[in-house]
């Protein structure tokens, strides 16, 4: 039981890391859409950097949620029902984010375009906030009773961990988007992304760094990965300053992975602590599925996850080229063949 549940705990943390690393820049790009480019063509450059890949990235979120349901049904049930209101909002944000990418270019009035531009920005920012908040909450705890249900009403989750994680998620995704745009675009947008990233990267990281550092109170040795996260962040910052965009992007990823790793290592073997009574905390043991289910799912995951990563890399490799305004075709206005 213990070994399998531990492996699954690690796998779910990996899925969340994958989600934040990949969709993290999609969300940042979405937030930046109204701000980083002034011209319509520039906005389309920004949007098209994530065009072919964002949907595949979002699946990491669905998989993380689905894997929590399969491997730790009690974790999934307690956390998701406790966060009923914020997750409803998160779903609305995700819906608008998804639809705006596909629909923005399909209308031609100024009102249509600016509606979907802002739907994209707000949807992306809201999603980043909610996901960050949810992950901080699951490591810092909720007022749960012995049955695993939240006590204190619809807003009992609204406390400092939600704010810390929410702001952290927002800041992380914003910067990750800037670093990604520096890597994926050419011209003005690239220059602006780089200069903004250089200015905002360190202050935007403060909430996440506080969250990461709190894990040291659980296990002292976690000072090592937390320090690694800090060093990676500083490295990313210096790389941005030096114009080494690939290095900046990779190090910003190391910062995320080291930080999330230490946070979840700190809370282990809990998956969702109870702030009312430690005895009511959900642990990998009390929240997990049977050995049989965990084994079956592990076999499938071990076989298929490398395949998924391989074809996602294949997909990224098809779109390696930097996008500039000259790559963007003329906006195509739908003709009217049938007039009535």
């Amino acid at each position: 039981m213990e070994v399998l549940a531990t492996i699954w705990f690690v796998l779910i943390v990996v899925l969340w890391m994958g989600y934040l690393f990949l969709d993290g820049f999609d969300l940042g790009v979405g937030m930046l859409l109204p701000f980083l480019a002034r011209s319509e063509r520039g906005k389309r450059v920004i949007l098209n950097t994530i065009g072919p890949v964002w949907d595949g990235n979002e699946v990491w979120l669905i998989t993380a949620a689905g894997a929590m349901f399969a491997a730790f049904p009690h974790w999934y049930a307690s956390l998701f029902s406790a966060l009923y209101i914020p997750l409803t909002l998160c779903l609305l944000f995700l819906i608008f984010r998804a639809v705006s990418i596909e629909y923005r270019g399909k209308g031609h009035t100024q009102a249509w375009k600016s509606f979907w531009t802002w739907a994209m920005a707000i949807g992306s920012a809201g999603t980043a906030f909610c996901v960050g908040a949810m992950l901080a909450i699951t490591t810092l705890g909720l007022p749960l009773n012995a049955h695993g249900d939240i006590v204190g009403g619809a807003f009992a989750w609204a406390s400092w961990p939600a704010l810390l994680g929410g702001l952290g998620g927002l800041g992380y995704a914003f910067v990750h988007g800037l670093v990604f745009l520096g890597l994926k675009t050419e011209g003005d947008i690239r220059a602006r992304a780089r200069s903004w990233a250089g200015r905002i990267m360190l202050p935007a990281a403060v909430p996440f760094l506080i969250w990461f550092a709190l894990s040291i109170t659980q296990r002292t040795w976690l000072v090592v990965p937390v320090l690694l996260a800090v060093i990676a962040l500083i490295g990313a910052f210096l790389a941005v300053r030096a114009g080494a965009e690939k290095r900046a992007f990779a190090l910003h990823g190391v910062y995320l992975v080291a930080g999330l790793g230490s946070v979840f290592a700190g809370v282990f073997p809990n998956v969702l602590p109870s702030t009312l009574d430690p005895a009511d905390s959900l642990t990998i043991e009390t929240a997990s599925s049977s050995d049989y289910t965990l084994t079956v799912m592990l076999i499938v995951t071990v076989v298929i996850l490398p395949v998924i990563i391989a074809y996602q890399i294949f997909s990224y490799r098809q779109f390696l080229v930097r996008i500039a305004e000259t790559h963007i075709p003329e906006a195509h206005k739908v003709p009217v063949a049938i007039r009535s």
Partner: peptide
């Protein structure tokens, strides 16, 4: 399922969560 039907999710999670996770892993990606 988790948000509104947590008792359901707790009751069936051992068997019902697996096809959902498989759907994401084998199909959605």
């Amino acid at each position: 399922f988790g948000m509104a039907w947590s008792e359901y999710s707790r009751f069936v999670g051992d068997v019902f969560g697996a096809p959902l996770a498989l759907e994401a892993l084998l199909a959605f990606f």
